[in-house]
Design a protein around this nucleic acid. Structure first.
Length: 299
DNA sequence: GCGGTAATAT
DNA sequence: CATATTACCG
């Protein structure tokens, strides 16, 4: 029954938007870049919520189809850090999904609903939801969703920036309205001495790049892009454009392309590029990429 | 700057 | 191992 979503090759109408890349670790400046799966059947509302989440520097993947949401949730792999799901249909599939295999989904799931009945709230909270937000949702509530991940983070040995907590506490009461984006980097000045800021070594570890995980989904998009391009346009830049996945860099694509492109030694004097792409198209790793489901690297 | 390749790093 | 980065070259 769940199998239905688990292995589906996902041809059912694409996502509303692109999936974020698939990092395997939180970044140094924690709340930023949090990968949020956002589901709501109301496209308009979906967009509103998305905007807010993005203002908080979260990486949002929207979805307005239940089936798709289920699929993404099941194939969470390392796609998302947290999910915000609309509980439109009180006794719908999502509830069954979460209550049945909720334990297999290792990311916090926040339920949103207009139903403010105690029964509904209770039911969800008892069956796996980590929180329940009643619509209309306050931006501030979206802003603080990262709180469900601090423990997990610290288990990974990452220190949560104090600022995050400070900010959360400081702005508790008022106006978050729409633009409450604070600069992620701030420091306490104690070293007065000729104000040396060390502009050089300011490696705050805040700018860590996340490793892209080429899972079925991304690889699928990659393949689609490659196959949809003319044989002479199978180059990183165009593939990237066609994939249309923000947060993917040209280098990411180039690396992936290279990795999956056998080298044609000799005889590449003339139309080398065409030859290469021809090979690429035939030997790129197909969607069956889901072998070793191992954890992140120790790096 | 971009693309391809190989080597090397993480 | 998978992915990123760098050096070199056209």
């Amino acid at each position: 029954m769940l199998q239905k979503w688990k292995a589906s090759s996902d041809q059912s109408g694409g996502p509303d938007r692109d999936l974020p890349n698939s990092p395997d670790m939180f970044s140094g400046n924690f709340p930023e870049g949090l990968r949020v799966l956002l589901f709501d059947e109301d496209r308009h509302y979906l967009h509103i919520l998305e905007k807010h989440l993005e203002e908080f520097q979260y990486e949002v993947t929207t979805c307005h189809e239940e089936e798709r949401a289920m699929y993404l949730l099941c194939n969470h792999r390392n796609m998302f850090d947290i999910a915000i799901m609309e509980a439109h249909n009180l006794e719908g599939k999502i509830f069954r999904l979460i209550s049945e295999i909720g334990s297999e989904i290792d990311i916090p799931i926040i339920i949103t609903s207009q139903d403010d009945s105690r029964e509904s709230v209770t039911k969800w909270m008892r069956n796996g939801a980590c929180d329940y937000l009643i619509k209309p949702i306050r931006p501030e509530d979206l802003r603080l969703i990262y709180k469900y991940l601090v423990k997990k983070m610290e288990l990974r040995g990452i220190t949560v920036a104090e600022e995050a907590e400070e900010k959360a506490a400081a702005e508790k009461s008022s106006s978050v309205g729409d633009s409450t984006i604070r600069s992620p980097n701030r420091r306490k000045r104690n070293m007065l001495q000729t104000d040396e800021e060390d502009p050089d070594h300011n490696r705050d570890s805040a700018t860590k790049k996340r490793r892209v995980v080429w899972d079925d989904y991304l690889n699928g998009k990659f393949l689609d892009a490659v196959n949809s391009l003319g044989n002479n346009d199978v180059v990183p830049k165009k593939i990237l454009e066609r994939m249309n996945v923000s947060s993917l860099t040209r280098e990411n694509v180039a690396s992936h392309l290279q990795r999956n492109t056998p080298v044609a030694h000799h005889d590449r004097s003339q139309d080398a590029s065409r030859f290469r792409t021809e090979i690429a198209k035939m030997s790129l790793i197909p969607l069956t990429y889901a072998h070793s489901a191992r954890g992140p690297h120790p790096f």
